[in-house]
Nucleic acid binder design. Structure first.
Lengths: 203, 203
DNA sequence: CGATTAAGTTAACACTGTTAAGGTAATAGA
DNA sequence: TCTATTACCTTAACAGTGTTAACTTAATCG
């Protein structure tokens, strides 16, 4: 009965899982729903993914790649470290707001989930942070930024961006504050906190 | 069979739910487990809480009060806006790290949950942000801080603190960076981004 | 005494992830 | 060509989840 497209069932499962994730969100993503959508039994999925974690990890991997592409593009678009950093911050936030479901499984899901995340994929996920760290490092080298540990600086930026994305996506930010206002203020404050004083530039 | 303590079953349910939440976390908190622990049937809980949401909302309410107490205490401990702000930032992060389960149901749980959160309790939760906003406002008034919309500033601080707490609690921050380093860097950067330049104070 | 109400129960529904066992068709070896 | 193996997929089941409907039992009230 099942309709064959190309590349086998594993591909079809992953495609359907992605579609279901983006359509109805992670909370509604179940093995049985995936199976029903593709006309197979739920247990068939276990022939290609040993459990739900593994399937979700494959989706997380996709999300990591998508985010990296966006960050990389932003990183390439400017030479100046400040502008690069600002562009990457905006790209990160935009990714989070544009792909809330991807963002949720990547960075919001329970600690237990992330603990089972394979070390190899974990390393790949860290490239995104290293992109931020390189901009911080360059800014320090060019003496635009106050000296600091670049990895700490990158994680600091990350926490700020992550907070903005998650609180906006979960609609916990006061609705009287426009998202754009918060986003641009966040970017401004991030740069302000790194730039050497005095800050006369308008970024 | 059920053992009566005092104040009726509703109190016992809430106490047991809280204990279960802090012991095994939200993911393992179920109506049936609560019921089993107190020696009642699961459906008895529905005589006092119309659904799980309502029960969790009661716990969220407790968490909001606990956090407010900590923030209020930090707010009282200093007169200078910078020191007050710093103290509150540290208090917020410490609360998040010390009560990860409370923090999760308060600020991490799915958007759907928060949508069903009653408006009355929502208003109470906002007092915590207003405490931050007042410190920002005072800093601006005393001309220590750069002028800005205080509510925007408070939300900006909140996003930074929230990011630190959630990424630390979910163990997503690079383990080579000590939590203390990240926390103090975050507080320093928050103040740096608000203080008028030049910044000669050591905070 | 009879009726009402309060408090708690059991059984069931519709879900969830996951495992064990079974079936069926194609393929490989003799 | 016959048999055995393997690949692929299924049904049935287990142990959970939140929640509802219907039932019992005891207390209270007129």
């Amino acid at each position: 009965m099942p309709s064959e497209t190309a590349g086998g069932l594993q591909r079809i499962i992953l495609d359907t899982a992605r579609q279901l994730l983006t359509d109805v969100g992670y909370a509604q993503l179940s093995m049985r729903k995936i199976a029903q959508k593709i006309g197979y039994s739920a247990t068939s999925i276990y022939l290609y993914y040993s459990n739900k974690d593994e399937l979700v990890h494959a989706l997380i991997d996709e999300g990591v790649d998508l985010l990296y592409a966006d960050l990389h593009e932003a990183n390439r678009s400017h030479a100046d470290p400040s502008l690069r950093l600002r562009a990457m911050c905006l790209a990160y936030i935009q990714f989070g707001l544009n792909h809330p479901e991807y963002y949720e499984i990547m960075y919001v899901l329970h600690p237990e989930y992330i603990k089972r995340y394979p070390a190899e994929k974990y390393r790949k996920a860290r490239r995104n942070l290293e992109l931020l760290a390189s901009a911080v490092e360059d800014g320090i080298q060019m003496e635009h930024f106050e000296a600091c540990e670049a990895t700490v600086g990158a994680n600091l930026i990350w926490t700020q961006l992550h907070g903005v994305v998650t609180l906006l996506n979960s609609e916990r930010v006061d609705k009287r504050i426009p998202a754009e206002t918060l986003i641009h203020s966040a970017c401004k404050h991030i740069l302000r906190s790194f730039l050497k004083t005095p800050q006369h530039k308008e970024v």
